[in-house]
Nucleic acid binder design. Structure first.
Length: 746
DNA sequence: TCTCTCACTTC
DNA sequence: TGAAGTGAGAG
């Protein structure tokens, strides 16, 4: 492995990298100023307009390009740099004096979400991607007006179950399918100041849901395995890949950072809104959800009952006929349509929200889905008040759930972890998916870059769902009040520990997860420079490798080589030998061995195939719960000190040592971080891991026979159905124009 | 279950 | 005006 200088740096262009690591390359910056060649930077060949060489997904283009422009921190507009531009010294990283912030997040259109949630929200996923409806909108407060924040959203599996819609209700239909590649959606306005964020409703309506695994995606960012909020590889794009018939929970993240590429090092404050949980479907299952969507989504106006269009008239007639039909044939039915079938359809959701309302504040995801053997009677009689009472009972008595309800629900773990720092005794079977009043406040998990000291002091958990608040849940001043759970895990502290904290992982962690284990540091020279973006990233970011993948061009070579290098580094192989491996073999090397591709915040170009392989390897290597549930790590979080001093598996020339050149700031971290680092060792890393006690089956609170009024589901009503069909045909026949005949089946 | 096309809508 | 977002319905 050759770490020595290979090529001269093109003045100007190299400096353009600095926005990515202003805190890491002061030495380099100074050497550049002094006319010294940065010892390891490879040649950078950028087109006259380097930025133009980049192709990024729409939502990412702006923030990324902003980063590339990089004027904010360096004062060097990237786009204005000519090939002969003079280098200017960078500011070394000065730990910013942060104004304390205490972000609070309010879910917009909560009432609408509640309506959907009550019925079991379904979100259609299509190949081309569908938006969420209701749209995910939040309002933020408590931010530092001057500080910059990046707001993100992702969608995680709510549990390990696959669902089916049977007898007008959602039921567990088995184990979940393999997890899809993780996606993260960065709000296109990111980064923006707290003031800007607080001045408006932050909407994520452009996020799309898809089941198309070959969907193009933007760049990828690898988070360290011990990152409290995100682990593994995340693709950043506008589309989130989901599995149909699986339940998901959107998450909202606030990250105080002015650079997207600092995400892996930054504090994540994560907010969960139980009412936004949904099941992904390729076609609507529950008619009530369909109707809710039609009634509320402007784009579906054409399907509304009220209207003057042909469709509306016909539908009105049809519905009228159906109502008459139902009245006639079902008046003997003792089951209430609204109260039974609807409840049955959403009960697996409702249970998740009910606890949120509960003053006890111990909801759990485990209780989200009903087991198949639930009592019909219970569900039949289950109305809102009853449900609450039932939940309350569960809160105090239930510690288990159906087997499928894994103990590692990400949300659940997050919740539990969130509670932990507050000293609240852990109830292994109780997952605080929601705060005591999560209907008004999200569950919040902050993975902070700071120690527990100051952060924890101001932790919303203390204010909200912590033990104290849990005891006085109604202290919240109404809907606008928040009682977020907060977990602060100090990532920055990693940087402040040891010669090269954050660059290695404790051996004990090796193999635990895809990104665990193997200390790995990728020298930029290990990479074959592809596009401008990747070049810059590799050259300037040390272990951070950035590129555009998916739709981008000209980076395939980088993909391959980068991964080979990563594999080589992780295995102690020479980069050259690894790089000679065919791409698919390189993938295999990485995936099959579950190697830690990127040690700490690496930005990689991952072709989907690789990601899939990685995911598969991860799934296989790690327990499913660990893999599927990012928050699980919260329970197995290791003391920050586990970051071992980085060790490169090959000789590193002094003059080009990354330790002294690439990461001087890390080698000699700012003082303030050091102090905090120490506190991390005693951070909630000690949180106990879940026990499996929650896996016990619980008594059903749902009805299995909540009589469905849907004729198509009632075999014994064939005659009646025929009659209805006749009516509908008749109605259809009224149409002068032979519009596409609708199915006669209701 | 899923995908595609269609008619309709918003922006 | 046209791109893009809707659910319905056929296959």
């Amino acid at each position: 492995m050759n770490f020595s200088m290979r090529d001269p740096v093109i003045p100007g262009t190299s400096m353009a990298y600095h926005p990515f690591l202003p805190h890491r390359a002061p030495d380099f910056a100074m050497s550049a100023v002094l006319g010294h060649q940065p010892p390891f930077f490879p040649a950078l060949t950028l087109p006259p307009n380097g930025a133009a060489a980049l192709s990024l997904p729409g939502a990412l283009a702006k923030p990324i390009m902003d980063q590339l422009v990089g004027a904010a921190e360096t004062g060097i507009p990237f786009s204005s740099l000519g090939p002969q531009a003079h280098l200017r010294p960078l500011k070394t990283l000065e730990p910013e004096e942060e104004v304390e912030d205490d972000p609070k997040v309010h879910l917009e259109a909560k009432e609408l979400w509640d309506q959907f949630h009550k019925r079991g929200t379904e979100m259609v996923i299509t190949k081309s991607g569908r938006r969420m409806f209701p749209p995910f909108k939040v309002r933020c407060s408590g931010l530092d007006k001057k500080a910059k924040y990046i707001l993100l959203m992702d969608i995680i599996a709510a549990d390990d179950c696959r669902y089916k819609f049977h007898n007008s209700r959602w039921m567990v239909a088995g184990k979940a399918d393999p997890e899809m590649p993780k996606r993260m959606y960065i709000h296109p306005d990111s980064p923006a100041t707290g003031e800007q964020w607080m001045s408006k409703v932050v909407t994520f309506h452009k996020l799309k849901l898809t089941n198309n695994i070959s969907d193009k995606h933007g760049f990828t960012l690898a988070f360290p395995s011990d990152h409290p909020t995100l682990q593994g590889i995340y693709s950043f794009g506008t589309q989130t890949i989901l599995n149909s018939m699986h339940k998901y929970q959107p998450r909202f993240h606030i990250v105080r950072a002015n650079d997207i590429l600092k995400l892996p090092y930054s504090t994540f404050r994560t907010y969960l809104f139980p009412e936004t949980e949904f099941i992904a479907v390729t076609a609507y299952q529950n008619d009530k959800i369909t109707q809710l969507k039609i009634d509320n989504n402007p784009f579906a106006k054409g399907f509304r009952d009220t209207g003057n269009g042909r469709r509306e008239k016909r539908k009105q007639l049809t519905l009228q006929s159906m109502r008459l039909f139902e009245d006639r044939h079902k008046k003997d039915n003792t089951t209430s349509d609204e109260s039974s079938s609807e409840q049955a359809a959403f009960n697996c959701f409702a249970q998740s929200s009910s606890p949120a309302v509960s003053t006890v504040g111990t909801s759990n995801l485990k209780d989200l889905c009903p087991s198949e053997g639930e009592s019909d009677a219970e569900a039949e009689s289950k109305e809102e008040p009853g449900r609450e009472a039932c939940d309350a009972a569960k809160i105090s008595t239930t510690t288990s759930e159906e087997p499928c309800r894994d103990k590692g629900s990400p949300v659940a773990h997050a919740q539990r972890f969130a509670v932990e720092p507050c000293g609240r005794p852990r109830d292994s079977g109780r997952l605080d998916k929601a705060s005591p009043d999560s209907r008004h406040s999200p569950a919040t998990i902050s993975s902070s870059t700071r120690g527990l000291g100051a952060e924890e002091r101001r932790s919303p958990a203390r204010e909200g769902v912590g033990p104290a608040k849990a005891e006085e849940p109604r202290a919240l001043p109404g809907k606008e009040a928040f009682a977020p759970l907060t977990v602060q895990t100090d990532v920055a502290a990693h940087l402040g520990q040891g010669p090269l904290p954050g660059l290695g992982f404790a051996p004990s962690l090796a193999g635990q997860q895809f990104f665990n284990g193997h200390p790995l540091f990728l020298h930029p020279s290990q990479f074959t420079m592809g596009g401008a973006f990747s070049s810059m990233a590799a050259a300037g970011m040390g272990p951070l490798l950035a590129t555009v993948s998916g739709a981008s061009t000209g980076v395939s070579g980088l993909d391959s080589t980068a991964m080979a290098s990563a594999a080589a580094a992780a295995q102690g192989l020479s980069g050259a030998s690894a790089a000679t491996l065919p791409f698919h073999l390189q993938q295999h090397v990485l995936a099959s061995q579950g190697l830690a591709m990127a040690p700490f915040g690496s930005l990689f170009p991952y072709p989907y195939t690789y990601m899939a392989a990685a995911a598969a390897a991860s799934s296989a290597a790690a327990s499913s719960s660990v893999h599927r549930h990012p928050f699980l790590n919260l329970h197995t979080i290791r003391p920050r000190l586990r970051y071992s001093p980085y060790s490169i598996p090959m000789p590193v020339p002094d003059s080009s040592s990354l330790l002294t050149t690439a990461l001087p700031a890390m080698a000699a971290p700012p003082g303030p971080l050091d102090g905090k680092a120490a506190t991390l060792a005693a951070s909630p890393a000690s949180v106990a891991v879940d026990s499996g006690s929650e896996l016990n089956s619980r008594s059903s609170t749902l009805s299995s026979s909540s009589v469905s009024l849907s004729p198509k589901l009632c075999g014994e009503k064939e005659v009646a159905t025929s009659e209805l069909q006749s009516i509908q045909r008749l109605v259809s026949g009224l149409e002068a124009k032979p519009d596409r005949s609708r199915s006669a089946s209701p």
